[in-house]
Design a protein around this nucleic acid. Structure first.
Lengths: 238, 238
DNA sequence: AACCCAAATATTGTCGACAACAATCTTGAC
DNA sequence: GTCAAGATTGTTGTCGACAATATTTGGGTT
């Protein structure tokens, strides 16, 4: 919208490797979860194609994948729109998350290496220093790789679990946080919970890790619902 | 392969409504989970396009969605292949299923209507007569709508759950059953378990329904692993 | 002034064609 | 006879164009 003149396809054509459709998919995913493409934004294919300097064919393939992941919503002959994540959907997802990340934590306890534990402690340390510096009460959700939850999920070595949680549903959670200016004030408690979780993993205590993770997710949802009920009352209906 | 001459696009062009890409997606899904397109089959786009009498553009969009649902596996510049569901993946999926269908059963107990219960009992009756008639020991998994599990999942009224289980993962389970000639001999026990499950739902006992469903799924996995270990030993390595 | 209907515009869905890359076959050398 | 390198075929990825449908604009009516 603001940059319709410069077709910055440098990133697209330069980086050799996979196809344009795949790269556009990645770029659009980023654009959506970063808020560059705001929720409910109408997506006009020629506009986007021109913006990224590509044809509509690979763009449409990317859109089809985004639709499959619920990042955009399409109706047959009308323009697609960036998905608006409703509180109801977020509740459903967190219910699923609680169960699935619990399983992931349990299985992670069975598969973590000492190097994994070291890496997780490193993430915790980084978060702690970030707290001290920023003095901001938000637990910034990392960019895929450096995210705490992502790492634990991947430690489960369960491909299906990794796919559902990391690829399909975390982006929707991010999208929801984006919409609702989610300042929870739960960061310090979450940090403590993370620490205990890593301790359980270090002990290879899968049962405890599952319980802690389930509580952690449930508490996060509770926090979300709280901020939602206090802020949305003045702003909007559910 | 056997029908390269007759472009049976009658189904495609006639049925008005949604787009060709959507219809091809449905047809290909059916073709894959019915075995018409056997696992590991190489998918050549021009061939399929000619077979269905359409262009490659909508076909590729459909393929992208199939890839996203793991029904086909693609590598950037090479032909796609129908996914081969490994025993490992099936184990992962059943672990997820156990948790998620358990939740679905619990939530279904909170939302089922008397009409739903009646419909479920109708399904049970139909299955019973089918047993008596066919005298075959397989619990034929229905075509989406008339399937027992599908119906319960939908009764949960949880959109995200419905999407993951019905849209994304049940097809993979079907695909696995297709590959492994899954004759479990568990049909009668499964039928009894289904009956108790409906009873629990009729009582609106969510807690019990969840437990029963979890056991039911876990038992199914156990049966699969059993047939796998006894048959694959003589046939194939895992 | 508000509302409804028709022309004009814009956008989507689909198609055929071309370039780049992978797979296969042929040919030649050892 | 076998292996390797080059030519050939086949397939994918991408593009621009066209028809069908949705959206917007403008005009007319109550």
């Amino acid at each position: 919208m603001d940059a319709d003149s410069a077709p910055d396809n440098s990133d697209l054509t330069d980086r050799g490797g996979d196809t344009i459709a795949d790269r556009i998919f990645d770029l659009l995913s980023e654009a959506i979860i970063s808020g560059e493409l705001a929720p409910a934004t109408r997506i006009r294919e020629p506009e986007l194609a021109a913006q990224y300097g590509v044809s509509r064919a690979p763009l449409r393939e990317a859109l089809r994948r985004l639709e499959e992941r619920q990042l955009i919503t399409r109706t047959p002959r009308m323009s697609a729109r960036v998905t608006v994540v409703t509180p109801r959907l977020i509740g459903e997802i967190y219910t699923i998350r609680e169960a699935l990340e619990g399983i992931a934590a349990r299985q992670a306890a069975a598969h973590v290496t000492d190097a994994d534990i070291a890496h997780l402690r490193g993430l915790l340390a980084a978060h702690q220093t970030q707290f001290a510096a920023d003095n901001v009460d938000t637990y910034r959700m990392g960019r895929s790789d450096d995210d705490f939850h992502f790492y634990i999920i991947r430690c489960s070595r369960n491909q299906a679990l990794i796919h559902i949680l990391c690829d399909e549903y975390y982006n929707l959670i991010r999208l929801f946080r984006l919409q609702h200016r989610h300042v929870q004030g739960r960061a310090h408690r979450a940090f403590a919970e993370h620490q205990r979780l890593v301790d359980a993993l270090a002990d290879r205590d899968g049962e405890l890790a599952e319980i802690l993770m389930r509580r952690h997710v449930a508490a996060a949802l509770k926090g979300i619902l709280h901020t939602l009920s206090t802020s949305s009352a003045s702003r909007e209906e559910l």
